[in-house]
Each structure stands twice: as C-alpha cells, then as structure tokens.
C-alpha cells in the first residue's frame, strides 16, 4: 500500500471532472423518464384502472423490492435477447449490438426511477385535499383541467422533498453504470485510482464531487420550495 498523498486528491479531482456530464446525463434521463412513468403509474393506481392497475402495483413492488443493480443486469442481458428475438422473427434490420452501453443504463435506471417516482407522485397527490378537486369541478373544470391546474401544482409542493430525495437517490445510483462499462464519475475514479495506484485519494475526490452535486440538488430544492410555497405561507408546516 502506498503512502497517503494529499496533493493527488486534487489531481484526481481534476481528472474525474470530465466524467461529470455522463453522470448528470444518466441522472437527468432516468429522473425525467422516471417522472413520466411515475405519473402514469400513480394515476393508474389511484384511479384503479382495470387490468393496468395490478400490473402497475406489481411493477412498483418488484422494483422497490429488488436492488437497482439487478434491474440493470436484467436489462443488459435480457433486452438484447428480446430485441434480437423479435428482430429475427419479424425480419427487422435492427440488432441489439447497435445499442450503446449507456443506453442500457438509461433504460434500466428509468425503469427503476419510474417505480420510486410513482410513489412520490402518489403521496403528493394524496396530500392534496379532496375538496380541491371538488371545488375545481364545481367551477366547471374537467377532471384533466382540475388535475393540471389545481391538483398537480399542490401535489408538487407537497411532494418536492420526496422528489429531491429520489433525484439524489438516482444520482447516487448512477454509480452502478460501471457494471455496463459506462465511464461515469465512479468508473473514472476507478481508472484514475488503478492507473496511479492511489485508491483512497481518487475515491475521496469522487466522494467530494458527489457531495457537492448532492448539496446543489438540495439547495435547488430549497429555492424551488420557497417559490412554490408562496401560496401557503404561514401554513401548518
């Protein structure tokens, strides 16, 4: 084991910076896609849409009950099998080899995020008083108008802390992308660590970067929260 080299922390820090965009892409894609999936799944579960409802519940239970790593591995090994199977059957030209590695991370993590986001959305919606929906109907809005204009904004305010937690969860979860050879912050730290044989310093630099990113997400959440909550200043919480 080498001696501790504090100055290398900075060197590693600079070398790892180049991988930040990859981490952010993965986080951003999985959070955005996850949010869309989450809203759909939450509405299906709240309105108990026949047939889809048990599927949605099963999806959320499965994802929340299993490690994120298994989702990635299942997609990485399973998706090509399905795609190539279908392609051979229908005679498509497309083959799974043309999917870039990061594509698997995008898909898998979006599926993971979707389940968690659906719980965020659901709890946010449940926090909105039913009287709000009734009042919106009473002034002549349709259900979708009421959802968009009255319920969702309030649900967002209620669900923001959970949303922020989930975004941080996905940011941290993106470190798993190394298993499908995507070079994110974590993988870059591994490379820097093993080429220089300075593991501790490299991972410390990576930890500091993640700490900083997490801090930024929390600050941003606090700012948005302040703006959104203008309407219920002096509220119960």
């Amino acid at each position: 084991m080498m001696k501790l080299d504090p100055s290398f922390i900075w060197t590693a820090f600079v070398q790892i910076l180049s991988a930040i965009p990859t981490t952010l892409y993965i986080t951003l894609v999985s959070v955005s896609a996850g949010l869309i999936i989450g809203i759909a799944v939450a509405l299906i579960r709240i309105y108990k849409v026949p047939f889809l409802h048990p599927l949605a519940t099963g999806y959320v239970t499965f994802i929340r009950g299993t490690p994120m790593l298994t989702h990635l591995l299942l997609i990485y090994f399973g998706l090509p099998m399905i795609i190539d199977g279908l392609a051979a059957h229908f005679g498509w030209g497309f083959r799974s080899v043309s999917i870039p590695m990061i594509g698997f991370a995008y898909i898998a993590f979006s599926i993971t995020a979707g389940a968690y986001m659906s719980e965020v959305v659901r709890s946010g919606l449940l926090a909105v008083d039913r009287g709000q929906m009734e009042a919106a109907h009473a002034v002549g809005m349709t259900t979708s108008q009421a959802l968009r204009r009255i319920v969702f904004p309030q649900a967002l305010a209620a669900g923001l802390p959970n949303l922020s937690n989930s975004v941080i969860g996905m940011l941290h979860g993106s470190t798993l992308a190394f298993t499908v050879s995507v070079v994110d912050i974590n993988a870059q730290a591994q490379i820097v660590a093993s080429t220089n044989w300075k593991f501790f310093e490299a991972y410390l630099a990576a930890a500091l970067i993640f700490w900083g990113l997490t801090f930024l997400i929390e600050r941003a959440t606090a700012l948005i929260e302040k703006r959104i909550n203008l309407y219920n200043r002096g509220g119960v919480i």
């Binding site: 084991m1 974590n186 730290a189 501790f200 991972y203 410390l204 930890a207 993640f210």
Partner: peptide, 20 residues
Amino acid sequence: FFRGTPILIQLFLFYYGLPE
C-alpha cells in the same frame, strides 16, 4: 456526508482509505 455520497463510493473509500 453519508447521505450526500453514494454507498458504492463509500465502500471503496473505507476499504482503501481506512487502513491508510
């Protein structure tokens, strides 16, 4: 710190860093 960094990074950090 422990909520702000990924568990994976923490694992490596302690495994390599603590002995040093």
